[in-house]
Each structure stands twice: as C-alpha cells, then as structure tokens.
Design a protein around this nucleic acid. Structure first.
Lengths: 327, 327
DNA sequence: CGAAGACTTGACAACGCTGTCATATAATCG
DNA sequence: CGATTATATGACAGCGTTGTCAAGTCTTCG
C-alpha cells in the first residue's frame, strides 16, 4: 500500500480510502491511485485488515463428513447464506470424533471466525464457552449442544419417526423391525424413541429381536435382518433410522425388498428409481442449514435474546415400499 | 497476551514462547504462564500471527457445487490432505459462474491462503496470474486452466468414454446414442470425443439424432431419448456423459431400462441397487482430490518445476445394464 | 475582502503477534 | 575465584491495515 501511495504521489491513507470506496477523495486522485494499483498489481492484505478491524467476515462449519450427501447439501445451504452476508466459509469434518471437532472449532476460533455452525459429535461443549464469551456466535444443527446453553436447530426426529412407523401400522403391519445407528448418536436415539412411541400407542409389542442399534456395517445390518426375519413370527415391515442404514438394508435385502414393507428416515437420491420406490421420512436438509445460518447472522447483527431452539418438520414421501401389505 | 504476561509477572515474549512451545523457558515460569492463560481464558489471535508470519496455514477450494456428491467427495479428499499438513480449508461453490469463481478466488487470495485448488468454470484464468506471481500455489482439478500455465490433475476422459462405448460395441451394439452435458464444459466435450472415436474406430456410423449435448433437464433428456428411439432404426444402447445425465435418463427410461443397454460416465451411489445394476465408467474422485492437493503441498514445500499435468485413470464397473444384448 | 465552513489530504498510533538482539543470571572450568 | 560460556528473559520493532484527528485548501457569503 505504501508502494502504491508513493507511485501515485499520495499518502498511504488515501490509498486505503480508495481501496475501501470511502468518500472524500477527489475523482482525479482516486483515478491516479487506481492506476497505480493496477500498475503494481496491488491487492489489499485482508489479514491486516482483519487484525485491525477485529472482524473476519468468515464463519466456520463443522460437520461429521463433508463427503456425505446429507452434510454436503447442508453445507451448501450454509455457504449460500454466508455469501448473502458477504462472508466466506471454513469447512471441516470431524468424523464423529470429539477430539477432532474440538481441534477444528478451536482452529477456526483462533482464526477469529465471526461465527460457528456446528453439527456436534462431542458430548461436552463447555470448551466453547470461552470462545462464545469472547463473542463468537455459535449455532448447533441437527443435534443439540451438550452441557451448555446455545442456539439449536433440529429436525423433528421423534415425530418424524412416529409418522413413518404409523404409516406402516396403518398399512396393517403389527410386527415392525427397527435398525438404527449407534444409540449414543442423538438423532438415532430420538428416532428409536419415535418408533417405540408409535408401536406402544398402537398397542403393539416390540420383540427384542426386532431392534438393532449400532454403527451400520454390511455385517451388522445382515445380522439384524437375519435376526428379525427368523423364527415363527418374522417382522413384515422395517423402519430404518437413517439413510446409511436404509441403503445398507436395501442392499442386503436384495429381491426380498419386494415383499417386506420398508420406510426409512432421510431421503436419498434415486430412492424413487428403485423397485419398489422407497418410502421415506424426508428431512429438509437445506432448510436446516439455512435456518441455522440465518439465526447465526441474526446473532451477529446484535440479537442478544436467550438461546433459541427451532425444529424443522419432516415430510413422509410415499413411493411404494411403505405401501406393501403384510403377507 | 499482555494481560497474561502481567498476570504471570513475565514479559510478553515469554508468553509467546510458552504458547508456541518454544524452548528456553524454565518449567516453573512456563507453568505460571500456563496458569495465567487458563485463568484469563487467553487464546492466541491467529490473525495477528498470520500477519506477522505471512503464512496462513490455510488453502482454498473452489468447485461448482459442494452440494453435489462428486464435489463433496473430492472436497473431503482435499480436506484430509490439508489436515495432514496442518492446514484448514476454505470452500466455495461457483455454480459454474466465471464471475463467482473469480470473486471466490480473489476473496481467498485476499485472505492470503497459501494455496488454491480450483475446479474451474471460467474460460480465462489470467486473473490469477498476479496472485500466483505473489506466491499463491494453484492446482486445477477435473478441468484445465485456461490461458495460463498451471498444474492440472485430470481424469482420462477420452479414454474412459472410449472404454465405456467399446464395452457396448463388444456386446454387439451398432447403434449407440450419446447424451452429454453442454459442450462448453471441458469434460463433456472430451467424453463426447471419446464416444466418437470409439464409434469410428469400430467403423460405426453416428446418426445426428443419436447425440444430444446440453445442460440436462427432465425435458431435454426426455426429448433426446424420444429422438434416438424413434424411427425405423432406433439405438439399442445408450452412453451418458456424466452422472446427472445418467440419473435423468434412467428416470425417464423407466421400465425401458430393462431392454436398452446402458453405460454411464461417473459412478453414483445405489447404481448397484437398480435393476439392472448400472454399468459405469467410474472415476476415482477421491484420488483426483488427493493427488491434486498433494501436488499443491509439494509446491508449497518449494518444488518449482514446470507445470505438471497428471491424468487419473478410470475403471469400467460392470453391473448388468451394459451387458444387455441388442434385440 | 475576510471569516466561517466544507472538503480533501496526511501523519500517526494501534490491532496482537513474532523475530532479533541485548541483557541478566546461572553453570562450568582452568 | 575470576573468566567464559550457556541459559533464561525482556525490550522493541514491525507485519499491512484502518480510525482518529489535525492541517491544508477551496468555497461561500455577509
């Protein structure tokens, strides 16, 4: 900037004014400065600007895995809102590892992001308290913060699962299986609860052999299916707790999927192309990201109200697999 | 940091030493400083550090749309390599818009990222020359840079498309259709070339009605299919230029997909679950991202060789749809 | 024509950190 | 025990901006 100033024969500050479009510079002078900038290929160093202003115009997003379509769609929604506010976006994948989540969060905070959107993996977020006290706005998405008060945007997990299971019950099913992700995962736990609630509200018994909750692998899902389909009273319908589980189960079921009624939590691409089409409880992932990020920017704009908790509703999308009648 | 120093009764510089784990601090002093840090909730301000050191330990990734699984997988690979090198990652979606790509690139550069991984949309990248001259390493992925010399990592598009079409030809097909994305897109253009090459190498004629290249929409793909399946000599096989086109075509084909041989460029989730399973020319997207980012860090480590151009090979994955014989 | 006001421009400090170099203290050795 | 060396600590400048305030120039109007 000093070089530009010298080249244009003005003071440093005048260059700063031109660069930032501040008023009070004669058109002629401004033109000379711009020419010098072009000539010298000058670009403002935002690091210095950030240091001086204390505002980075950036936010951080921490999720489980950006490679997973669920999070990538969410990520895009967050990016769009950030962009509307002139912010750029840091992204990081925690792989469900609390240590890594913390590392990422602190790395972003050290870079003085203005705010943080977190899909939490940790079960203790007190490590964020000093950062939040220091003014870094934080919104939690998809799962709530643990041990601290914070803004949260969630899907209606219990209600959605209940809707899905009720759909099967209305179809005449009485023996319905459930395969979910590991129970320590918040959404997994709630969807399981929704399943139990729907069953018990309909006066239906749940056999232990019908329920499996674990990180889904080919083997674990195959075992779960064997277990619930064996014996004299096999399940006639299956509810899956998320899209990874659904896909694994459908893969394992193979041709059997034509006769076993199926509903999954989470929509996924091509669900409509399979035969039969896969009935799902769809979450509006983009909306989740959008709502959360808009809340974040409301905070950044100065909203100091108490922590908010928003729920985004789900939608039952019927495609055929949920409408298979019991044998 | 000054507060911490005062609290611990040492000089600023000593705090700096402790924070950075520099040698030459008595254990007792270090302990006192650490206590003060905890007490005051101090966190180093990386903005200042960056300004001082001139190194941001961050890289930027610009792609078409992080919400698209292709890019999100790539993004994850880039993130992993960045992490191995202790860098954080900015991401941004250009939506194929040259202006937006440029804005993002310059925004990242202004924040003084150490390097840039770009999946280009623009057809002129000279705007990056000053930045590259200023030392920002840049690697282009999936498509080459335009009008400048730069490191590039590409998929073997022509060869992959040729392989896919040859597979159909070996299956006995002589009338093979092609639906690709808009011809201005680099990969689209090359895959089209591969299709033409394979056909002409086999001495097969290509009817104009068999080829459509445009941004895929439900309507455009439906029209393309109608056109190539009408008349006395309809195509007996179809090759699609990317996964979006493939999915749209499969959706439009419906039950017809059981009789029309099909191969698509790009793998996609659940391709194995459809009936028949979808044969694809798979690119190793994660590898693409990994190779590119490793190249970037080689540059950052000081490698000043001439611009490199690497190709990543494709793999034909047979699942059934490509093995349907001609009627 | 002189004073008040409006506008343009510039000098300088400060943001929070790290690198350099100087100084004070402790350890080592002939 | 004094001289030398190793070690621990601190003072200070400077990274490239922007905010503050003062100074200079040009209008305007009584």
């Amino acid at each position: 900037m000093e070089d530009v100033a010298a080249y244009a024969g003005v003071a440093l500050k005048t260059v700063s004014r031109v660069v930032n479009g501040e008023p009070g510079v004669t058109p002629g002078t401004a033109e000379r400065v711009r020419a010098a900038i072009d000539q010298l290929g000058f670009r403002r160093n935002d690091s210095a600007r950030i240091l001086r202003k204390g505002q980075t115009a950036s936010i951080g997003l921490i999720m489980e895995d950006i490679g997973n379509p669920f999070y990538s769609v969410l990520s895009r929604a967050v990016e769009d809102v950030a962009r509307e506010h002139g912010h750029v976006l840091f992204t990081g994948s925690s792989d469900e590892d609390p240590v890594r989540e913390r590392e990422l969060a602190l790395a972003f905070c050290a870079r003085r992001v203005d705010g943080l959107v977190v899909i939490p993996a940790a079960d203790d977020h007190t490590y964020l308290l000093p950062e939040m006290a220091a003014g870094i706005a934080t919104v939690f998405v998809d799962r709530p913060a643990r041990l601290i008060e914070a803004d949260t945007v969630l899907t209606n997990n219990v209600g959605g699962a209940r809707d899905g299971v009720n759909h099967l019950i209305r179809g005449g099913h009485r023996r319905i299986g459930f395969i979910g992700d590991a129970p320590r995962i918040y959404t997994s736990m709630l969807r399981h609860r929704g399943y139990r609630e729907a069953m018990s509200a309909a006066g239906l018994r749940v056999d232990d052999a019908w329920v499996t909750m674990t990180t889904p692998t080919t083997d674990s899902v195959a075992a779960a299916l064997r277990q619930m389909l064996a014996g004299p009273a096999p399940v006639t319908a299956l509810f899956c707790g998320n899209n990874r589980v659904s896909v694994a189960a459908l893969r394992e079921l193979g041709p059997l999927s034509a006769t076993l009624a199926f509903v999954g939590f989470d929509d996924f691409e091509l669900a409509d192309l399979l035969t039969p089409g896969v009935t799902v409880v769809a979450q509006d992932v983009a909306r989740l990201g959008r709502v959360a990020t808009e809340l974040l920017f409301r905070r950044l704009a100065g909203d100091r109200g108490p922590a908010e908790r928003t729920e985004v509703v789900t939608e039952l999308v019927r495609r055929g697999s949920g409408e298979i009648p019991p044998p």
